[in-house]
Design a protein around this nucleic acid. Sequence first.
RNA 1: CCGGUAGUGGCGCAGCUUGGUAGCGCGCUUCGUUCGGGACGAAGAGGACGUGAGUUCGAAUCUCGCCUACCGGACCA
Length: 614
Amino acid sequence: MPPTWTLLKLDPPRCRFKENKQANIVAMPIRLSQLFFRSLREDPVEAEVDSHKLLVRSSYIRRAAPGIYSWLPLGLMVKSKIEQIVREEMHNAGAQEVHFPALLPKEPYEESGRWEEYGDNIFRLQDRKKADYLLAPTHEEVFTLLVKDLYGSYKDLPLQLYQIQTKYRDEARPRAGLLRGREFIMKDAYSFDIDDEGLEASYQSQRDAYERIFQRLGLEYEICAADAGAMGGSKSEEFLAPSAIGEDTFVRSSGGFAANVEAVRFEVAEKVDSSNVPVAEVHHSPETPTIKTLVDFSNSNLSRHPDGEFTAADTLKNVVLKLVQADGKSRLVIVGIPGDRDVDQKRAEAWFGCDVEQATEEDFKNHPELVKGYIGPAKDGKQFLGLDTESKLEYLLDPRVAEGSHWITGANAREKHVYNLVFGRDFDADGIADIANILPGDPSPDGSGELELARGIEIGHVFQLGRKYADALGLKVLDENGKLVTVTMGSYGIGVTRIMAVLAEENHDDKGLIWPESVAPADIQVVPTGKDEEVYTVAERLTAELEQAGKTVLIDDRAKVSPGVKFADAELIGIPKILIIGKGLANGEVEIWDRVANNRQTVNVESAFYQLLS
RNA sequence: CCGGUAGUGGCGCAGCUUGGUAGCGCGCUUCGUUCGGGACGAAGAGGACGUGAGUUCGAAUCUCGCCUACCGGACCA
C-alpha cells in the first residue's frame, strides 16, 4: 500500500513561490537555511525581562546602543504585522497617513515652549552652520503647522492624520529592552475639529479603533481614566496591558471602574455627627514622633472609647510638602491625611500640577513653628495651620476626613498630641488634597465596588488636547460666519515597538516565544528532521502547497542540523503552529505541534495539510 | 541625576589574591561519524585583556585618573 500522502496529488515543487500579481512581488517561504538568524543558547547578560531575553536570543533584535535596537528580519516581520493592523484600523477610523522628518529644526518647538520644557529628554544636535536641530520626541507641532499651512476653512474639517514613525527620547535610564527605549516606534494620530462636539466624535472614533487594534493583536488591555494634567487637555484615557513588570499602577473595581492611580478622585466624605465626641484634650506623649510610636503610646496609656484599640487610622498625619513650579519657585503646603496612609507622589503631582517634594531640614529651619513629628492643625484651642493664620501655611485635608470626625494629631509642641480634635468644631482647612495612596479594598469613587490595585504597561493613550497647540502655533480657520476660530485637537498614540515587547512578554513559556497568529512571522513552521531525503521532499511539497493556499511558511531546511536543535529553535522563534516531518513519514504520518496549547498530535499527511489550512 | 556592580575572542565566563608564553564552555571553519530534544571525534580560525598615566627588567594582574555599560532607584506630557 502506498503511503497516504501520495493520495494528495501535490503539485511538484515548481510552486515553491506564489506570485502576488497586484504588487508584482514574489512571496516565498522563509528558509531558515537562508535567514539572517542565529539563536543564542544563553540569555544576554544585560536582559532582565523575559521579552528582552527572548527577542535577543531568537534574533529578532540586537542592542546597538543603550535603549537603541537594530531590527533583524524576524523582528521586522512582526513589527510590520503590528503596523499593518494599526494602519488598517486607522484607515477604518478615517485617518490618513503622513510621514515627517525625524530630524527637525528647533523653531516649532521653541514656539510651543517644548524646546525648553523637554530639557535633557530631547536629543539635540547642530548642523554645520551651528543651527539647532532635534530628533523628534513627538510631532504635535509639525502636525499642527502642516494643517495650518494648507487648510483655512471649517469646510476642511474634521480631519484626522497619523504617522507611524521612529521617535527619540534621551531617557535617563532606558530599560527592559523594547519596553522603554530611547529610539522607538509610535503611531501618533491627531484630530482637528472646529468645535467640542467634533472633537468628541473624533476621539470616540480613535478610541474605537484602539479597541479593534488591541483585540486583533490578541492583547489584554484595560481602558483607564488618565490624568490629562500637564497636556492641558480635558479628557484622557490610557490603554494599559496588565503586567507584573508594568511601570504604571492602576485601580479597577468589579463594577467596571478603571483608572490610573494618578487620575482617581475621591468624593469628600459625608458629614458625621460629633455631638458625643468629648472636648479635645492635649496629652503629654513622650517620644512619639511617628504614627507607629503614637499608636503604641496611645494603646498603652489611654483607653479608647467605647473600647478596642487605637489604630493608625485614628490619627491624622500632617505632611509638609514642597511644591516646586516649573520655573523653580516653590512653596510649602501641609496636608492632613489619615495616619494609615502615605502621600502618593504621583497622585500628589497630578493633583497639584507641579513637582512635589518632601520638605527639607532647611524648610523646617525656616519655619521654627513647625515641630517635626508633632504638627497639627490647631494649637491651644486655636487654628494653627492655614492661610489665614499666623503661620500663613496652606492647610489641606484628605477627602476622607469628614466634617465632624475626630482625630489624634499633633499639638504643635514637643511631645504633645491632642485627642478628640474634631474637624469643623476644633479646626478648619483651606481645602482638600486628594493625594493619599490608594489601598486595596478602598471603595471605588463611582460606587461600583471595592478597588483592586494592579500594574500595567501603557500601550496606548487617547486624549483631547484641546487648543493648546493650535493656540501656541496659531492654527485657526474661518467658520461659517467668516470668523476666525481656533481649531481643537485630539492626540492618540500607540507604542508599536512597545506592543511587540508586551506581546512577547505575555506570550511565551520557558522555551521561547509563542506569538499570536495575528503577528507571528509566519503562520506555520515546517520542521523536517533526520537525513531521509523523502522527508525533505515532502516537507518542500507541503510548504509549497501551504503557501499556495495562502499560508506563510517558515521551513527549517537546514541540512545536518540535529532534531534537537531544530526543535529548540522552533520553540524559541515562536511560530504558533509547527509541522514536524520525520520518522513517522514511513507510515504516512506527520506531527502537528500546537505551541499555544502545547500539544502534539500525530496525523496523516493529508489531514495535517487540511488542518493547517483551517 | 543618585546608588550598586562590572568591563578579558561573536556570546557566557575563569585568570587578578601571590606580576613572568592569555585560558574554558558555547558559537564559527574543515573532515569523518551521528540524525526525534541544543550529538561525537579530530584538526583549525579568531583577543588593542575598556582607556590614559604610573610602579616594575617585565602589568590582564599592583596604583591613580578617566570612559563605558548593566542593574536598582528618582525621573519619564
